[in-house]
Design a protein around this nucleic acid. Sequence first.
RNA 1: GGCCCUAUCGUCUAAUGGUUAGGACAUCAGGUUUUCAACCUGGCAAUCGGGGUUCGACUCCCCGUGGGGUCACCA
Length: 461
Amino acid sequence: MIKTRFAPSPTGPLHIGGLRTALFNFLFAKQNKGEFLLRIEDTDKKRSEKKWEKEIFENLEKLNLFWDNKVERQSKRKEIYKIYLEKMLENGTAYYCFCTKEELDKEREELIKQGRAPVHQGKYRTLPLKEALKKNGNPVIRFKCPLNKDIVFHDLIRGAIKINTNDIGDFVIAKDLNNPLYNFTCTIDDYEMQISHVIRGEEHIPNTPKQILLGEALNFPIPEFAHLSLILGKDKRKLSKREGSTAIADYLKQGYLPPAIINFIAFLGWNPGTDKEIYSLDELIKDFSIKKVSKSGAIFNIDKLDWINGMYIRKMNLDELTQKCLPYLKQKKGIDNKKVVLAYKDRLKKLEDITKLTDYLYQDKLNYNKELLRWKDMQDREVKKSLTDALNLIKENNENIKEKLIKEAKKASSIGNFMWPLRVALSGKKASAGPDEIINIIGKEESLKRIQSALAFLTKS
RNA sequence: GGCCCUAUCGUCUAAUGGUUAGGACAUCAGGUUUUCAACCUGGCAAUCGGGGUUCGACUCCCCGUGGGGUCACCA
């Protein structure tokens, strides 16, 4: 059975890159009727926090990326790692190393100076275990890396990748029996969880031969690998917090819709090869292909996210959208927020936009520059006349306001001469919904009040 | 510095070795709108450089160059 896993370390919020890794693992597993598993890599006690673990769960759930089975936590698996560690120590594929940090730093520096791979090929690698156990000090446990051997693996996305063991060296697999390190725990867990496909970020390519070597030393079957390119920022560098948020939670908070986020992230490095760009999660499961994932890094472009999100907002049914907009809207007696949402759904890129766009609907007193009331080169008295006409028309009518306004507007020398001052009087804004929509939302009484205020405003100066 | 990955419009990307190098976002122009948005039409815009292989190269190979990753007692 196909099994994939998402294995974040709980040291920060779930970010764009992590989400894409999770998504691709999810899609690949689901389209093969396999399992998508979740493993928390929290062996680093200093940096791992429960709150981040929770944050990761919550956000995956919000995005409908549900995992199978229960979550594995590395911190709960110490005993298992210990058994494998002892096994490797005993069969000589790992050894205790007593080198101090200072010695290693010096060695590294020297190697770089000589233009050689800065890796450690330990002087303790031949020290028998029995002797090592008698020796004083705080040794770490290193893998005894085979010398000058080419490790080749076939990456599902990139094809064959070859690395020579001389460029790897005897890497540390555990601080001691009770404190195993990443490459080791990862190898053990992928084996024990029977992971068939390891899909992860490109930064793990150098770790892959290490994990293969470890797997070989333990007689594990080797899984398939696929390495995703990195997601970059506008400056073509690794996406950093500096340029806006990278945390998924922030996008959710701003009112980017989960299916839009999924759709957008899926297209960062993958596409179906057709013109279809709007994809639901189910459709993605069907059409996704790991082999078609692109090899080069993709720049995170918020404009496209905005566009996709706008598409999803416009597609949504009004009741549901209104519910989702509620947190971003003010409340006022007499105002039906459903009408507000209807008037603005075509103008939103993300839900939070609606707050600023509609603030004027809820205000008791509008604050705008008098000049705004003037359409092109209208005279003050023309503006007043337009507003007065509008005032009377609205006063006398309760129905079909839109048609009546247009009919009246057509009598004017230009439609704008009538409509613009009215719209500004009602909204106080350069850009807003149409006058009829505003009247429909705030009601006749409030509309008349606003037009009168505008007239008074004009007269005053 | 060693090793590894990578390179098509500004961005995301498409193109069994043969296409006027296609689409989308952004942008620009026009239409529709009182305005803004939405919508419709159209325009601008790319194969990193140099060598090969080939009748023919975005595509394959080599050498550069750029970008990225990694070389932790982090993951």
